[in-house]
Every structure is written in structure tokens, then in C-alpha cells.
């Protein structure tokens, strides 16, 4: 509010025409945001509660829904830590050392962002599916990756691979290696440097990256849809369960489950906004690289 008040004296001197233009621009922008962003979000909750709270709760505590929640959490619990470790390792290598092909490596880390989710799923089917490279061997050893949980995890890892690295690399680049070198000269070991100097400097950016990685891991649809095989109660994550309910014309159920995911999105947005507001300077310049 303070900003508005302080801007007022200036604004008074502006011609009426310009103030009209400002108002119009703000109106159009807000109108678009309302229509295109807020309304769909509202629709999720309204549709979810259309048939009453009883139906809503019933849809969520349904065994298949609970199984989907459990599987979604399981996938995230495996994929997110793996990509976090990867992101930290990649950022360490990319920002503290010079080596040939660094630019190429950076492009490769970004690659999953520009691959369609469906193709992300497809590549694992081609690798591990019945007709895939390792298909016969896997079958001979009675290991099922595709149309099973490991496939879901792999596809999710692929899709969410860049998130943590993309958050850390620009930050660590901006921070330079001075503090790490200072620690080295003072006699610190590699792990001491990482845990005592680097990690405290990147913790909020790391959390930010993990947050975005997790949101995508739990919400991914296209890639997991291709590798899941849609086995109810076994290989259905929450987004896939939404699709199944929706295709069964169980709209209230679909939207009830969807509202859980929408809540996850809202919580993610709130935490993300909080991190940006509270620790903005420790997150470095963030360029949007996709989700």
C-alpha cells in the first residue's frame, strides 16, 4: 500500500489519457489471468464438491485412490532424492571445474525439458518393453520394468531430471569458487568443504529446486501414462487415476482426486513465493526453463 500512496503525487500530474491507458492495460491483463488461470483452478474445487462433501470424501478414501496416493508418494520419494543428488553433483562439476564439452553437458542436462512427455515415456518402453533392447533379457529373468512401478520411477526421473541442477548451476556460478578455495587452503577436506561451506550457501536454492522437482514428479501425466499400463490399484499414480475416473464418467470422483493435486500445486506455489520473498537474493537469477 505504501508504494501506491507514494506513487500518487506523481500520478496526479499525469494526463487523464495516460491514466486511462494504465487502467485499461491492468484491466486486460487481470481479465486474462482471471479467465485463463484462476477460473480453471476454481472449477476444480467447484466440480469436486458439486455432489457434496460425502461423495468427495468417498472418492478420496476409495482403495484405488489411496493406492494411487501411495504410489505417487513412492515414485516421488525415489525420483526426487535421486535427481537432487544428481543436481548437486552436476552443479559441482559444472561450476568448479573447466573441462571440454561443458556446454554440451549443460545442453544435455536441459534436454528432458524439451522432450515431449509422451516421448519421454516412449523411450523407456523401447528400452525395457517386451520388444525393447533389454526386453528379452528382462523377460528371461522375470523382471518387469515397463507397465510396472520401476518404469514409472524411470520416466519420472527423466522428466524431472533438470530441476535441481538448473536451480543450482546459475547460483553456484554466480557465487564463484572463492569460498571453496579459501576452505581448501585452510585445510578442509572435500566433504568438509561441501557440507560446511557450499551447502549452507545453496540450501534455499536447493530447497527451491527440490520443491519444483517434487511438484512435477507428483503431477507428471504424459510420461507415466505411456509406461504405466493403467493397472488399477497397482500402476496408477494420482494423475492417472484422475484420467481413469474421468473416462468412467465419474466426474465428481475425478475432480475430487484432482483437487488433491491442485492443493499440492497451491502449496508448492505458496512455498515457492515465500522462498522468493524471504530468500530471493540467495536464489540467484532464475530463468524459467519449463516444468
Amino acid at each position: 500500500m505504501a508504494a501506491v500512496v507514494s506513487a500518487a503525487p506523481l500520478r496526479r500530474h499525469r494526463p487523464i489519457g495516460r491514466r486511462l491507458v494504465h487502467g485499461l492495460l491492468i484491466g486486460v491483463a487481470l481479465g486474462f489471468l482471471l479467465l485463463f488461470l484462476l477460473l480453471p483452478l476454481a472449477a476444480v474445487f467447484v466440480e469436486a464438491l458439486r455432489k457434496g462433501l460425502g461423495t468427495y470424501v468417498a472418492a478420496i478414501v476409495h482403495p484405488e485412490a489411496l493406492a494411487a496416493i501411495e504410489l505417487t508418494l513412492l515414485v516421488a520419494v525415489i525420483a526426487v532424492p535421486l535427481n537432487t543428488v544428481f543436481g548437486v553433483a552436476a552443479a559441482w562439476a559444472m561450476t568448479h571445474f573447466d573441462f571440454r564439452g561443458k556446454a554440451l553437458l549443460g545442453a544435455l542436462i536441459d534436454l528432458p525439458f524439451s522432450v515431449s512427455p509422451v516421448v519421454s515415456g516412449l523411450i523407456y518402453v523401447l528400452l525395457f518393453g517386451a520388444q525393447g533392447w533389454f526386453g528379452p533379457w528382462l523377460q528371461a529373468h522375470d523382471i518387469k520394468l515397463i507397465f510396472a512401478v520401476p518404469g514409472l520411477v524411470l520416466a519420472t526421473i527423466f522428466v524431472t531430471l533438470p530441476f535441481v541442477a538448473r536451480e543450482l548451476i546459475p547460483l553456484m556460478q554466480a557465487q564463484g569458487s572463492d569460498e571453496e578455495e579459501a576452505a581448501r587452503v585452510l585445510g578442509a577436506s572435500g566433504w568438509q568443504i561441501f557440507f560446511r561451506v557450499t551447502l549452507p550457501n545453496i540450501r534455499w536454492a536447493l530447497l527451491y529446486g527440490v520443491l519444483l522437482c517434487n511438484a512435477r514428479a507428483m503431477g507428471e501425466f504424459g510420461a507415466v501414462s505411456v509406461v504405466s499400463g493403467h493397472i488399477r490399484g497397482l500402476t496408477n499414480t494420482l494423475p492417472l487415476h484422475v484420467e481413469i475416473l474421468y473416462n468412467d464418467y465419474n466426474y465428481a470422483g475425478a475432480f475430487a482426486v484432482a483437487s488433491l493435486l491442485a492443493l499440492l500445486a497451491l502449496v508448492t506455489l505458496c512455498l515457492k513465493t515465500f522462498l522468493e520473498w524471504r530468500y530471493g537474493s540467495e536464489l540467484a537469477a532464475r530463468a524459467p526453463r519449463g516444468h
Partner: peptide, 13 residues
């Protein structure tokens, strides 16, 4: 929001 909202949810909404 479109970054955070799972695509399936956006789709049905």
C-alpha cells in the same frame, strides 16, 4: 500456476 498444476488436472478443468 500452469507450471505447478498437474497437466491432467488442467485438462479436465
Amino acid at each position: 500456476l500452469p507450471f505447478a498444476l498437474p497437466t491432467a488436472v488442467a485438462g479436465i478443468a
